[in-house]
Amino acid sequence: MQMILPIAALVMRSLALLCLACWSMSQPAAAADRERVVAFLEVTGFDVALDSIALSASSAPDMLGVDAGAFGSQWTRLAEDVFDTDRMRSLALDILENTLDDEALEHAAGFYASDLGKRLVRAENASHLVEDDEVKQLAGNRIISDLVKAGSKRVAMYQRMGNAIDAAGTGVRALQQIQFRFLMAASAAGVIEMDLDADELRALMKEQEGELRLSLQASSLAASAYTYQEFSDAEVQAYVEALEEEAMQRVYELLNAVQYEITANRFEELAHRMAELTPGQDI
């Protein structure tokens, strides 16, 4: 069975734009109440990032070597049900209500409520909802190429942004874990037959880790170039510096873990539910 990783770029889209890193599940001294967390999701744009997880569902059949078209509208209904945006937001709220402390919430909300923060969120939200990721990547790569030719400092800024995204270097392994859980769930549900057991699959993913890391770094640069092309150097610099602050890092660590867990959870559910599909019986 040939292993491919199309989900990586799709998940990276949200990862790159939200500048999220991994977190440890420690309980804060004072958790925020649900109403404030709802407002926090909106002001930071994380609500739209959660919604955009649904776009990654289109990669699922390719990962499994299954033709979604054979299931007709059954597939569309299933994907919409599993990746229901209200359900994903509710899952996020359940976690954040018990883990996001008031100090971190206020710090991040304060930045994103500023004039620059509001403009950044609008740009990021618009980029999240671009369904054709290939078009966005191509456009971003052209921008990066032009910046390199011009000797612009923007490329270095975007690289710093990438470092702020994944300071602990755990993003690649988290993405591989999402795919691992999806493939194992699909195998257990009888959707696919794998020639590899769990240990062999992990070993294969370990071999692919370096290549995936380079791919994600390139994807991150292109996504940033596309998303922030209307901002000045000074504005991008200010954003990078804000993302590097310790308080913001704590927020991004938490949000990223939430996003990873919800993505993995929904893909596992999708794998189990795909066993219900019947090829050739569209309604």
Rank of each mutant, 00 (worst) to 15 (best):
L221V: 01
S24R: 09
L255V: 10
A79H: 00
S152K: 06
M248A: 01
E244C: 05
S26T: 09
I192M: 05
A31T: 03
S219F: 05
V135H: 09
M25T: 08
N125P: 00
S215M: 09
I95M: 12
G280N: 01
S90P: 00
S73V: 13
E244R: 07
R77W: 08
W75V: 02
G65C: 06
V172K: 00
I53H: 01
R181D: 15
L17R: 07
D199C: 03
Q217L: 06
Q217C: 01
R213I: 01
I262H: 08
D94N: 11
E211F: 10
A247W: 07
T170H: 06
D199T: 07
E103Q: 12
G169I: 00
E244A: 12
H272D: 14
L93G: 04
E235S: 10
G72Q: 02
G171Q: 07
Y260L: 10
Y239H: 11
A238K: 11
S224R: 09
A68E: 13
S58M: 08
R213G: 03
S114K: 08
M12Q: 15
S219L: 03
P61V: 00
L255C: 09
R202M: 12
R36A: 15
A92C: 02
R266F: 02
L50C: 00
F40E: 03
T85V: 13
D86V: 08
V155Y: 11
V43C: 10
F267N: 08
G190R: 10
E207D: 14
G140N: 07
L201C: 04
Q177M: 10
E124C: 13
M157C: 11
L175F: 04
G169K: 03
T263A: 09
M1K: 13
E244G: 13
E193M: 07
M205H: 10
N125H: 04
I143D: 06
D33E: 15
I4A: 15
I262G: 04
P28N: 05
L105W: 09
Y252P: 00
R250V: 13
E124L: 05
M63C: 09
A54G: 09
R13Q: 11
D81W: 04
I178K: 02
L55I: 13
P279A: 01
C22R: 07
E42W: 03
F83E: 08
S145F: 07
A139I: 07
Q137P: 00
Y260N: 11
M248P: 00
Q2T: 13
F182D: 07
T263N: 05
Q229C: 06
E261F: 02
V155Q: 06
L212I: 12
T278D: 11
V38S: 10
S232E: 14
R266K: 14
R154M: 15
S219A: 15
I53P: 07
R181N: 14
A186G: 15
A164D: 13
Y228L: 13
S24K: 12
Q237P: 01
R142N: 07
E230M: 05
R34C: 03
R122F: 02
L96G: 09
L93W: 02
V82W: 11
R89D: 00
A60Q: 04
I53D: 02
D102N: 08
G162W: 11
L270Y: 06
